[in-house]
Nucleic acid binder design. Structure first.
Length: 496
RNA sequence: GAGCCAGUAGCUCAGCUGGUAGAGCAGCGGCCUUUUAAGCCGUUGGUCCUGGGUUCGAAUCCCAGCUGGCUCACCA
């Protein structure tokens, strides 16, 4: 690619000048003693002390014989005062040739400037890395306590494609991803404290299963066989329950070959966990506690702000069977689960129904249209029709339902759980029903997994299982409107 | 897949009902030892998304396309 960019050309010339002066613009390291945030936090003890800091130059105010600049590290920014008489003429000339985006290391005294800003007054300065491509640098001004940002790097496409730039110049973006990491850490802590074992299972699977979705297909050359990228890890984790690991979980990258929108990315992260000897009632208690724990760890409060709502995750959350929920929000009684009644009801509600849709699907449509958007505060929607849930155990009081729940927060389901089906005869029948759907053209119907059936034929204890979408949970906890805002590198079309 | 919106300098944008392309910031040169959107003086920089059409003349109007964003649909 020809570089028509004059700015890059100029910087490359600067690089050459540096080499000519015997300066290595890419040295091997720098011994820093403090990060920027620590200096600000511990200013009272550090004032007048010598420190060494390093970071990227983000703003600069140059004057004839002294300059100010801000450098940025992982914790934030700090101002440096660079005076010619302090660091020497040669170094000062070097500094004046530097650009926003360059990395430097500085040693010096911690002091406040006349205007009260904590700063490092440099007595030495080292160039740590020369940047040859200009950053789209934003400038900020505070006015009446409000931050006005100029020339913000805001083009969404560029932000997603060049996330490295986004992270450098948009500090709030970094916070989202720090929180994402904390959410996962908190969840892992909570699970470990509750005797769960973190495990890993195959991403490349000869038979995909555990969810209703189309897979990505690939090929293993040496074995000359088709493999699928997993759409879920459910069936493998349950094999481990069979094997005697009573509590397991995995943070899994799953892959689904489907559309992309603000709730869906082709690869996404899901935690699945399984607990032997427990049912879905126990698991609802557990989920409430876990979410409450995470919110407290990450945000310091069980209350979160999402999309203009304040949402309180404090347990207990209401539990509402899906059929009752539909009755409550539409006034229609669909508890008969009669297909004709359901189709008529859907018609009255202007919910589009196609001939191939069964009972479960129609219920799901009505629910999605009339109920789900209203469920802002956390609620467990329970006891779905059996047709939609081939891996869930039948409800102890009603064989047309399963013991399943979905935690719904902010008008969106962010998980799915059930009392796991461990009856091998029933499981085989459910798979066969799915295969019939598949034969009729439902590409998302689940595939019969003979090895999984063999496993549970050996016997699987009663088990409760849960999947939680980490991306959606992060959206919720960080108040982000799109999955692309909680993925470092969301899927994009090829560039150009 | 449908609707709406957008594409002009490295970034953020202006450019009306057609008259030969602008600002701020960044960059470059100069001045400047407490600045913080530092300031002052000077200055470089453009396939106006692409291709057609209308016109004496198109960034601007028309048509087609490309790319992207948002919304809806699809999608656990």
């Amino acid at each position: 690619m020809e570089d028509i960019n004059q700015l890059v050309t100029i910087r490359k010339e600067k690089l050459k000048d540096l080499y000519d002066q015997g300066i290595n613009p890419y040295p091997y390291g720098f011994d820093r003693t403090h990060q920027t945030g620590d200096i600000k936090k511990e200013f009272d003890t550090l004032e007048g002390q010598n420190v060494a800091v390093a970071g990227r130059i983000m703003a600069v105010r140059k004057m004839g014989k002294a300059s100010f600049c801000h450098i940025q590290d992982m914790q934030g920014r700090i101002q440096l005062y660079i005076a010619r008489d302090k660091i020497g003429e040669e170094r000062y000339t070097l500094f004046k040739g530097l650009d926003i985006g360059d990395f430097i290391g500085v040693t010096g005294l911690v002091k406040k400037t006349k205007t009260g800003e904590i700063s490092v007054f440099a007595d030495s300065m080292t160039l740590l890395s020369k940047s040859i491509r200009p950053l789209p640098i934003a400038k900020e001004k505070e006015e009446d306590g409000k931050k006005i940002i100029y020339d913000q790097f805001s083009d969404k496409e560029l932000r997603y494609r060049q996330r490295y730039v986004d992270l450098v110049v948009n500090p709030h973006v970094r916070e989202v991803f720090v929180k994402r990491s904390r959410i996962i850490t908190a969840m892992r802590d909570f699970l470990n404290k509750n005797d769960f074992l973190e495990v890993e299972t195959p991403v490349l699977q000869p038979i995909y299963g555990g969810a209703a979705a189309r897979p990505f297909k690939t090929h293993h050359n040496a074995l000359d066989m088709t493999l699928y990228l997993r759409i879920a890890n459910e069936l493998y984790l349950k094999r481990l329950i069979v094997g005697g690991f009573d509590r397991v979980y995995e943070f899994a990258k799953d892959f689904r070959n489907e559309g992309i929108d603000r709730f869906h990315n082709p690869e996404f992260t899901q935690v699945e966990l399984y607990a032997a000897y427990k049912d879905y009632n126990w698991l609802m208690d557990f989920v409430e506690q876990m979410f409450n724990y995470i919110a407290n760890e990450v945000n310091g409060s069980p209350k979160i702000h999402f999309n203009g709502h304040e949402i309180d995750l404090t347990p207990p959350w209401p539990r509402l069977p899906i059929l009752e929920a539909i009755q409550k929000y539409t006034g229609k009684d669909v508890s008969s689960l009669d297909e004709n009644v359901l189709k008529k009801t859907a018609g009255e509600l202007n919910v589009e129904v196609t001939p191939d849709m069964g009972v479960g699907k129609i219920v799901d449509e009505i629910f999605g249209e009339y109920v789900e958007p209203h469920l802002i505060q956390p609620v467990f929607i329970t006891d779905h029709p059996v047709e939609m849930s081939p891996l869930a155990k039948k409800h102890r009081n009603n064989p047309r339902l399963v013991e399943r729940f979905e935690p719904i927060i902010g008008g969106k389901e962010i998980g799915n759980a059930f009392s796991e089906l461990n009856d091998p005869i029933d499981q085989r029948a459910r798979f066969e029903a799915q295969m019939q759907l598949r034969a009729r053209g439902d590409e998302e119907a689940q595939v019969l997994d003979e090895d999984f059936l063999r496993a549970i034929e050996y016997g699987m204890p009663p088990t409760a299982g849960l999947g939680v979408g980490i991306d959606r949970l992060t959206m919720l906890m960080t108040n982000q409107p799109s999955i692309r805002d909680v993925l470092f590198f969301p899927h994009m079309r090829p560039e150009k």
